[in-house]
Design a protein around this nucleic acid. Structure first.
Lengths: 105, 105
DNA sequence: GATTACTGCAACTCTAGGGTTGCAGTAATC
DNA sequence: GATTACTGCAACCCTAGAGTTGCAGTAATC
């Protein structure tokens, strides 16, 4: 559903450890325990990060037997990118307008 | 120069107060003191946020008489957006490939 | 049914950083 | 030259959250 509040998504993305998790999931779906075997932190810490990522729609989970497998959602990243692109373009547009006015003086 | 380490930029963008500042600067350049008149926090707090934003290339400053005027840099936002777009696309590509394999079974 | 992986919850530590106050420095204005 | 805005620095408070340990719950496997 990509529920977007923008800033929370960016806050979630502003953490190196969470990127380690996202990169790992980007290569292959995995459970919290499996991720704990790859990263230098505990499973519980990873579980918390996964909860954050899931809350902002960057990750989704599904039961697979007795384990909870997580997968990464590229759509949320794309949507966030589009919004940033939009805002940046707006700013540049204003600056260009100012420049034009300055040159006419 | 848009020096990009990506995660620090996203961390800088993951704060509501800093967005208030960016939005204000998006409408018009301003000094820290001027911003303090618009937002419900002190000038010093704003100065810290501006330092963070400047460190990651989202904002630039220039002396204008006795005040330091800040302006927003859309280019950094656009560049960040492009990187996110790229990564999201990569993830989706892998997921599409997996789906294809699954359907062939 | 006992054992073996998983997940889930709770309490706790510790640091980063968002915010504050207070004061010193410096450039315009009168 | 005195006053009046600005910026800059330092010390401090306080909370959010990243990480930990420990244990209970639950679903496979033997």
């Amino acid at each position: 559903m990509t529920t977007n509040t923008l800033v929370p998504v960016l806050a979630a993305l502003g953490d190196e450890t969470r990127w380690s998790i996202l990169v790992a999931l980007g290569e292959s779906d995995a459970s919290a325990s499996a991720l704990a075997g790859m990263l230098p932190i505990t499973r519980q810490a990873i579980a918390k990060h996964l909860a954050v990522l899931q809350a902002v729609g960057l990750v989704a989970s599904a039961r697979r037997g007795r384990e909870l497998r997580y997968r990464v959602l590229g759509s949320q990243l794309s949507e966030t990118a589009r919004k940033l692109e939009q805002i940046g373009a707006d700013w540049d547009r204003r600056l260009v307008a100012i420049k034009r006015i300055a040159e006419e003086l």
